[in-house]
Every structure is written in structure tokens, then in C-alpha cells.
Write a protein that binds this DNA or RNA. Structure first.
Length: 315
RNA sequence: GGACGGGUGGCCGAGCGGUUAAUGGCAACAGGCUGUAAACCUGUCGCCCCUUGCGGGCUACGGAGGUUCGAAUCCUCCCCCGUCCA
């Protein structure tokens, strides 16, 4: 570090769905003159409100929120896009002398924002289409191809994980260099900031109970109507965000493939499974400051605010 | 009362005389993840023991008997469940 250039501060609030990230982030933003930057891969999308537990305008209590409703449902949005927009938001907020508070449960986006991605080519739809066709003709052939072009990558990516095999191949074909080699050149990490990463870690059973309850309320408060509305706007039920839990089941219900009870059951179950995966992701996260409990608990909020206060005095 | 069909590990569901602790799916638990990530993928999964290696022991397919070298698989009786005829 040069020591001359003052570093801006940024706080992140991570944790599994339903842990109360939004509430805690809001609290931190209110307390320290901050603005919230969304880091949820689905709140990015317009019209997907109820099922993504987006805060309403009123719930935001006047605190500016960024990177919410910035993409249409049929738009391809990647971690790279997120990292770019996220950094722009950070710069903008810091530039105005305010504190950016990143909030969200998409671990991959969080790492793309802070740790960065490797410097490689972006996705190439045409190439992918060709590769996908090949794979569907002969399942497993992509992994075989990768083994020839980039043995190291083939060794670390399971042959069944087609999306990752495809990305590795795509990189190799476009950059004409193995991904593993590009990885070694490091990531495009965020610079110029001091970061404090908080991660909510509620007790498992309590979290699951809350997730179940939350899912029920989503259906009760019009998730189905929301989905109908999105489809009425002309978006296909095959659009990416419809693949997510809750929305997937709502679509199936509209098609008559599930009844209300089943839809709720599967939505709850998949959300619980997701929460578990998030915890796995964050557990290994570097330099995480753990907060046991939910983000809306006064006790947890006090602990978080104290932590942030201390962090800001060092900055 | 009669005729069929069925009761399998937390659930669903194969197996129908022997390499079967028992295919598979789900759940559960653990984990991976460098541009679609709320996605995609992997491992474990009856109990106990030597942390040793495809190792050893025990308990398991509604219950009780029986046939057999050997049964979840065949026979008998009983108990449940479903459909149909009365």
C-alpha cells in the first residue's frame, strides 16, 4: 500500500436466505451514513419482487439502494457484469462521502466483487451453442474434449458438471490458453478499499423454520399473481430467474403440474437446501466476521454496529 | 363374508431362492465452485469395532412358524392397508 492514498471503506453483510441481511444492512446504512448495494443475483431482475424478498420503497426508509431492478428477466446477467456494476456503485457512493453497504447472499457475486474474477474472455453465446449441440449429441464428449485441450482443468472439473466444463472449454478455445494457466495469473481484485465482511449465522433449525414461514407468506401475498404478471408482459416461463426456488414452483402450479400444497412444499424444501449451500460457501469465506443470530435481532444489530464503528475508526 | 393387489432401511420405490446391508429417487449430513451461481456438480448415508486396505461383528425387508446348505424372495397361520364383489 502506498500509504498516501486514503482507502475508502466498504461493509458487506452476507448470510443465508432469511437470515435478515436486508434489515441489518439497512440498520448499518442508517447508522453510518451509508447506502445499500444489493448482492443478490435475483433482486437484480425487475418484476421479481415477492419471491426475492425485495424490500419495498417504504421499507427502505429513504436509504438509497443500488443494483436492484437493473435487468430484464430475459437478459443474461453474469458475475462479471455484477462485479463491474458493483464497483461502479462503490465508487459512486464513496465518491459522495457515504459508506457502501453490500448486502446479499450470492456468494459468487460477492467474491467476484471483492476478490475478482480471472482475466479471461467473456462468454460467447455462439460458441456455447455449438458446444451444447455437441454435448447433447454425445453426452460426456465435452469433458473428453477438455481433457485433450486442458488436462489440468479436466482433472479438477467433474465430467458431470457440464456448465463448468463448457466454460473451461470456451476459455481455452477463445483465449487459446488453458484456464488453469490463466487462473495462475491471479484475479482482478477490488483495490482502493478497506473491507469489513459480516456474515450472519443463525442457528440452523431456527433459520429453516423462518425460511418455511417466509415461503408460505410469499405464496399468500401474491407470488402467483406476480408470476402471471411477468408472463403477461411477454417474458417466457423459460427465462433464467424462473429457475429459482419459489418461482419455479409457481410456474409449475400455473401449468397445473403442482397443486398449492406441493408447490409450497417444494419451494420451502429447495429454499432450505439453498440456505445450506450458502452456509457452506460462506463458511470458507476469507476474513469473515461471524454474527450468530438473525439480522433483525437487537442483540445482533448492536454487535454489528459496534464492529462497524470500530472498523471505521481504523479506516 | 368372498376375490384380487399390497406391506422393504427417515420417505417413495426396485428386487422375487445365493457375490443383497439390499438398484434407484428424495430427504438428511458434508463438500466443490474463478462470467447464466436461488444455477450446476461431488461424497457419505442401518449400528458397532480395528483410524489400517475391496476388513470384522451385530441387526435388518409387517409378525410367528416352516421348507432349504442358504430366503426380502417359496409354504402355513396371523395382523394391518387398498380396490372390487357381496
Amino acid at each position: 500500500m502506498s500509504g498516501k492514498v486514503p482507502l475508502h471503506a466498504v461493509v458487506a453483510v452476507a448470510g443465508p436466505t432469511g437470515a435478515g441481511k436486508s434489515e441489518l444492512a439497512l440498520r448499518v446504512a442508517e447508522e453510518f451514513n451509508g447506502e445499500v448495494v444489493n448482492c443478490d443475483s435475483l433482486q437484480i431482475y425487475r418484476y421479481f419482487d415477492i419471491g426475492t424478498a425485495k424490500l419495498t420503497k417504504a421499507e427502505m426508509r429513504g436509504i438509497p439502494h443500488h443494483l436492484i431492478d437493473i435487468a430484464d428477466p430475459d437478459q443474461v446477467f453474469t458475475a462479471g457484469d455484477y462485479a463491474r456494476l458493483g464497483r461502479a456503485a462503490l465508487a459512486d457512493i464513496s465518491g459522495r462521502g457515504r459508506l457502501p453497504v453490500v448486502a446479499g447472499g450470492t456468494g459468487f457475486y460477492l467474491s467476484a466483487l471483492f476478490e475478482g474474477l480471472f482475466r479471461g474472455p467473456e462468454r460467447d453465446p455462439a460458441l456455447r451453442e455449438r458446444l451444447a449441440a455437441r454435448e447433447s449429441r454425445r453426452p460426456g464428449s465435452l469433458h473428453g474434449l477438455l481433457a485433450r485441450f486442458d488436462a489440468a482443468a479436466a482433472a479438477r472439473i467433474h465430467r458431470n458438471d457440464v456448465p463448468k466444463v463448457m466454460r473451461a472449454l470456451e476459455v481455452r478455445l477463445i483465449a487459446r490458453r488453458p484456464v488453469t494457466e490463466l487462473f495462475r495469473e491471479g484475479r482482478d481484485a477490488l483495490e482502493g478499499y478497506r473491507t469489513l465482511k459480516l456474515c450472519l449465522a443463525p442457528e440452523r433449525d431456527a433459520l429453516y423454520a423462518r425460511v418455511d414461514e417466509r415461503c408460505r407468506r410469499m405464496f399468500e401475498s401474491g407470488l402467483l399473481d406476480e408470476v402471471r404478471g411477468i408472463l403477461d408482459r411477454g417474458y417466457s416461463a423459460g427465462a433464467k430467474p424462473f429457475e429459482s426456488h419459489g418461482y419455479r414452483q409457481a410456474v409449475q402450479m400455473l401449468r397445473g403440474e403442482l397443486n398449492a400444497q406441493e408447490a409450497l412444499f417444494y419451494a420451502q424444501r429447495n429454499t432450505r437446501n439453498y440456505a445450506k449451500r450458502q452456509m457452506t460457501w460462506f463458511r470458507k469465506g476469507p476474513e469473515m466476521e461471524w454474527l450468530e443470530g438473525f439480522g433483525n435481532e437487537p442483540r445482533v444489530q448492536e454487535a454489528a454496529l459496534a464492529r462497524v464503528r470500530k472498523f471505521l475508526t481504523i479506516c
